[in-house]
Amino acid sequence: MAALLEVENLSVRYGDLMALRSASLSVDEGEVVCIIGPNGAGKSTTLAAIAGGVRPVSGDIRLEGRSIVGRRPEHIARLRLSLVPEGRHIFGTLTVEENLQIGGYMLGDRAAARAGMERLLGHFPRLRERLRYPAARLSGGEQQMLAVARAVMTRPRLLLVDEPSLGLAPRIIDQIYEILLELRQREKLTLLINEQSSARILKFADRIYVLRGGAVQVEGRAADLRDGEAIHRAYFGFGTQDSAPAETAA
């Protein structure tokens, strides 16, 4: 059986910069997979390319075995793949409710969209209280929740989340991960999540990819990577037991 999502030898170039060099990864139905890596590793580029926002120079992206490379983002959204981008990208002048509605229009079924919103708001009581507010007036954590809820309004099977913890307090981050886990079960979501830090992710994920310099350094089951040494080595290019790294000093 083919994986839900397969990314094969994906390369992305921004002008002279190779953001992604022949990166491959796969996500099975029902899994939680995390990509971790430092700033500039190519994590956001990977998710944007999968969602159709960035065109790769080479490589293939398959959803349920069918290639989706070169399709427009709005078409990929209709294949039930949704992206929560880095920085949230809330429509600040629209109300919270309108932000959520945007995600539901694609379904072409108003009653279903309204029922979906009602069900989702059960997970986000803060948003329900603020439905009529312009979304720009929400706090950072509330905006992140809105971004997740809005993406789930499209009824995705595969949800890509780019750095949900960025700029948020630890308590809020915990809440967001709790909600993601709830949604995963209730809405039968498969999750592919980017993060910079690995501690929280190791508890949460089934499998992990470490990305650095646009290439996959390490992949494996989260349970096998829990001691952190392999991740540390992949993330920084040297291990915790090594002496001062000669190559990074240069």
């Binding site: 983002p73 709005e74 949704s82 002048t93 309108e98 945007i102 309004m153 499209t154």
Partner: peptide, 22 residues
Amino acid sequence: PQGVQMRAAAEDFRMAQYLGVR
């Protein structure tokens, strides 16, 4: 709905596309 999508697209075109707005 078309109007709300238009306002969303005016604010952040790419994000609107990610949410299925044509």
